[in-house]
Simulated scan of single mutants.
Amino acid sequence: MKLIDVVELKSGTPQFRLVETSDPEAPVYCFYGQQELEADLSGKKRDVNCAKKIRTYDAVEVLSVGDLVFSLMSGKATLVGECHEGYLLTQNFVKLDPSSMIDARYLVYLLNEHKGVRRQLALGQQGSFTMKYTVRQLADLLIPDLPPRATQEAIGSLYFSINRVTALRHDVAEKEKLVVMGRIKEAY
């Protein structure tokens, strides 16, 4: 079956169409970007100060906790974390609304790790000048037969847990490196 058979796709807001205002009463939105996606995927808490903001009265697509997003730039998916609620979804991302047939965390696992799905995404990039995925390519992805819902939930949960553990181990390794480098510097 195709991905479009189990999800509804919604494109992000095109940035170039937004009209920025200086009116202090207008809503302010932070842009959801690749750094936010990586933080949500690893379970890391990020600094609440967003890098890029816009003040606009325009209707925009904003994110809620638990929304499943896919980056058309990196080809990665994740679920939006609490610290990114209310962020503006740009045209570089697509929001996927899974049907009851598929668990959202399991779908993130499929999009990020399943060899068959990744191969289809990679094939769609061959010969492209700009390495950007398309909404059509995403919709047409063939996904494997779905296991029972309980199995999907277990796989999805394990996937997010191992991503969190991997991120924590990476942080520990970076801190250990800083300590060792500091001691080497002191020795000279």
Rank of each mutant, 00 (worst) to 15 (best):
S64A: 12
M73T: 13
V28S: 07
S22P: 03
S64Y: 12
L9V: 08
A122Y: 06
Q125L: 11
V28D: 05
H114I: 08
A51L: 10
V28G: 04
E61D: 13
R55H: 00
L111M: 08
L107P: 09
G43P: 04
R136C: 15
P24G: 06
D23M: 04
G75F: 06
R55A: 00
Q152Y: 08
H114S: 03
N92V: 04
L72D: 01
R46Q: 13
K10G: 13
P14T: 09
V94G: 03
F129D: 15
F93P: 00
L18M: 02
A150V: 12
E113P: 07
V62M: 14
G75V: 04
S42P: 04
P147G: 05
C30T: 13
L41S: 01
A122K: 09
V80G: 00
T13S: 03
P148S: 11
L107E: 05
K132Q: 12
Y29V: 02
F93M: 01
K53H: 12
C50N: 12
G127S: 13
Q137F: 15
G12I: 03
E61K: 12
E38F: 05
Y106R: 05
Q34H: 10
P148L: 09
A59T: 07
L72M: 04
P27M: 06
G75Q: 05
T13K: 03
P147K: 06
G33M: 03
Q34K: 10
V60M: 02
L72A: 02
F129Q: 15
Q125M: 13
R55P: 00
